[in-house]
């Protein structure tokens, strides 16, 4: 265990699946040097196979007795998806532009496909990063002791000097958020942008999120919104808690959506578009209580009464979503992307 634990909350009711987080992470960390196929941050449409495809079927994590479960290393071509390239020169010469290779999988393969049947189809987006677990299966599985949790914030990292690329961690992570870099022959993963965090800045995925769905802060910081959402209101829940790794990324589950239509096209009062069983399968039995709390607060607000919870979830002030120690917040506007305005033109 670390002395403190940094955590992230994501409100799935606000995620629009724009993948700005994915692109922010990709361009910052994984668009080069053997990491091209990796998406430390991905956003998948649920229901769907996810990324890597079928990751929930690949084992890993701990069983009821606390022992590591068997896990598999996903296939790059069939499950992660080979990052295909394009011969754009061909277009310039009057040819066609096609992906080189046959795309079979990718980080956003099932985007918006959804489940159910029209007109009662349903889906929601599930953004995923490393959960920086309190009981990381990757750490437990590494025969080299190359994976560690930083004491000051609980961020799970790979010690590249110790890693020998044996991939036990890839198989052991039930979320499949550790990746093998064939070029460097090391395991690599989300580092929660610790170089940014050390400067008081949120991870790139969180800062860039246009929907303001991500809060970042220390779980023991009682005044922080992360603590409020996870501990006080208990509306933010871990993904697949049954995997036994004690994740530190928490999700505000999606509300059940509009009512379903009957065969005549009439809405069925009290029905839910998203089956509760699907949400329980993802977020555990705490979903019922979390949804009840959210709905009660929504009702309060609709009745014109104040709701501290909803005010927090709306996230009126971006900087308040991140409490990362003294001087934390966002980069001051004037310093963001500063451009030259040469006075001597």
């Amino acid at each position: 265990m670390s002395e403190r634990q940094l955590a992230m909350v994501m409100d799935l009711n606000k995620c629009i699946g724009c993948q700005t987080c994915t692109v922010a992470c990709k361009t910052q960390w994984t668009n080069r040097e053997g990491r091209e196929y990796m998406y430390w941050n991905n956003v998948e449409t649920r229901p769907g196979k996810g990324y890597p495809a079928g990751w929930e079927e690949l084992g890993g994590g701990f069983d009821g007795s606390g022992a590591l479960r068997e896990g598999e290393v996903p296939s790059v071509s069939a499950q992660y998806g080979t990052p295909w390239d394009f011969d754009l020169e061909a277009a310039a010469l009057g040819g066609e532009v096609a992906a080189q290779g046959t795309p079979r999988a990718g980080p956003n393969w099932d985007e918006d496909a959804g489940g159910g049947e029209h007109p009662n189809a349903w889906f929601f987006y599930l953004p995923r990063i490393c959960n920086h677990c309190s009981n990381p299966a990757c750490l437990a599985a590494c025969p080299r002791g190359a994976i560690f949790k930083r004491p000051q914030d609980g961020v799970v990292l790979v010690d590249r000097a110790r890693c020998e690329g044996q991939r036990y961690c890839v198989a052991a992570c039930p979320y499949k958020k550790v990746y093998f870099n064939a070029k460097s022959f090391r395991s690599e993963k989300c580092i929660l942008c610790f170089p940014r965090v050390e400067q008081g800045l949120p991870p790139a995925c969180a800062q860039q999120c246009v929907g303001r769905i991500r809060w970042v802060g220390y779980l023991d910081d009682e005044a922080g919104q992360v603590h409020q959402l996870v501990r006080r209101w208990q509306v933010a829940l871990p993904l697949h808690p049954e995997y036994g790794t004690q994740p530190n990324v928490f999700y505000v589950p999606p509300l059940p959506g509009p009512p379903r239509f009957d065969a005549q096209g009439k809405p069925i009062p009290g029905s839910a578009r998203i089956p509760l069983s699907e949400l329980e399968a993802l977020f555990g039995p705490g979903v019922r209580k979390a949804l009840a709390t959210l709905e009660a607060e929504l009702a309060r607000r609709k009745a014109g009464k104040p709701s501290e919870l909803l005010d927090t979830l709306v996230a009126f002030r971006h900087a308040e979503m991140f409490r990362l120690g003294a001087g934390s917040g966002l980069v001051p506007l004037g310093r963001r992307g500063v451009k030259s305005l040469d006075p001597g033109r």
Binding site: T22, V23, W84, D85, F86, V97, A99, G106, E111, A113
Partner: peptide, 19 residues
Amino acid sequence: KVSPLLLRLQRGRPCAMLN
């Protein structure tokens, strides 16, 4: 439309969504 970064977040070529 032809950005490889963004095409990799789709299916890499024009696709039609069918019921």
